Amino acid sequence: MQKVFFTQSVGETSAHGETPKAPPVKERMQVPHQRLPRWIKITPTRTPEYERVKGIIKRRGLHSVCQEAACPNIRECFGEGTATFMILGKYCTRTCNFCDVLKGQPQGLDEDEPARLADTVAELGLKQVVITSVTRDDLPDGGASIFARTIELLRRQDKNVKVEFLVPDFGGKFESLKIVLDSGVDVLAHNVETVGRLYKRVRGAAKLDRSLRMLRLASDYTPRPVIKTGFMVGLGETYDELVELMHQIYAAGVDIVT
């Protein structure tokens, strides 16, 4: 089995008090250098389909996380006629250090956004839709009602459309999460993003325990959608911390991890 090593500050220890060490230089030198596979390289081309999707989103006055979060894969997704939509405006009330979405105080709530998004999905001919949002701590329900309204209008356009919501933590308010779960969403995603030790530096106002609790509540709920979460690596976490995080995710009843 190949060993996996994670970057770590000098003198920093793992969750179990052990300081991971890289293999000796001589051993590392024996591993043949491998080029990255061709498919991992991005070709910066602007295809007609890319321009079409970008134009539709702009014309409808919508936002995509592909654009707002500066995703490097935007040309691939737009080029294939799809996008991950971002609702509740473009200003996030949280200040997570890893995220490129604009931070600030949102100006009101766009009540017409769900209708425009539903029309956009119909125009693009999508049969599966992924929708995320900024965090709106300024709203009593965190924007949960807009998620519910969005799927309602999507299903009016196409009753068979599959919908995945990537939701914020709603400040830990189960009533807000319940609104989303009752909407009939097919996949409910909420990302834990990183290991507990790094939360203050990486996620600011978020809390790992809160996110895990939201996932557990969603997993125990009826009707139960597919439960999904995701996290990043390469932020200074250790191997042991990642293993611990995956155990926590499993205990929360998560079905899919990315």
Rank of each mutant, 00 (worst) to 15 (best):
83 A>S: 14
255 D>G: 11
71 C>K: 13
40 I>W: 02
66 C>Y: 03
31 V>Y: 09
188 L>D: 02
237 E>H: 11
118 A>N: 06
116 R>A: 02
77 C>E: 10
38 R>C: 08
149 R>N: 12
256 I>G: 01
48 P>K: 09
63 H>F: 12
79 G>R: 06
215 L>Y: 04
116 R>I: 07
239 Y>E: 15
126 L>C: 14
92 C>E: 03
215 L>C: 04
89 G>F: 00
255 D>C: 10
31 V>Q: 05
255 D>K: 07
112 D>P: 01
50 Y>P: 03
23 P>S: 01
62 L>H: 05
167 V>P: 04
151 I>P: 02
46 R>Q: 13
110 D>I: 11
46 R>F: 13
208 L>T: 14
78 F>C: 07
223 P>T: 11
4 V>M: 07
49 E>V: 13
256 I>W: 02
127 K>W: 05
145 S>K: 15
107 Q>C: 05
66 C>A: 07
219 S>V: 08
7 T>R: 09
81 G>Q: 13
159 K>D: 11
224 R>Q: 06
192 V>S: 10
233 V>H: 06
113 E>K: 04
256 I>D: 01
231 F>L: 15
193 E>N: 04
68 E>A: 04
193 E>C: 07
217 L>V: 00
236 G>S: 13
100 D>N: 14
64 S>P: 03
33 H>W: 04
254 V>P: 08
228 K>R: 09
69 A>W: 00
86 M>Y: 09
236 G>Y: 14
52 R>L: 04
56 I>Y: 06
196 G>S: 13
122 A>S: 10
222 T>K: 14
138 D>G: 01
194 T>L: 03
158 D>P: 03
225 P>L: 13
223 P>N: 14
136 R>M: 08
57 I>W: 04
51 E>P: 01
34 Q>N: 05
37 P>F: 06
185 V>P: 07
247 H>Q: 13
179 I>N: 05
131 I>G: 01
21 K>Y: 02
4 V>Y: 03
109 L>S: 11
110 D>L: 02
235 L>C: 08
80 E>R: 11
94 R>Y: 00
163 V>R: 03
233 V>F: 09
51 E>S: 12
28 R>D: 10
140 P>V: 15
130 V>C: 01
22 A>T: 08
247 H>E: 15
122 A>P: 00
9 S>P: 01
133 S>R: 00
57 I>E: 07
163 V>T: 09
193 E>V: 01
171 G>P: 10
219 S>H: 14
161 V>N: 12
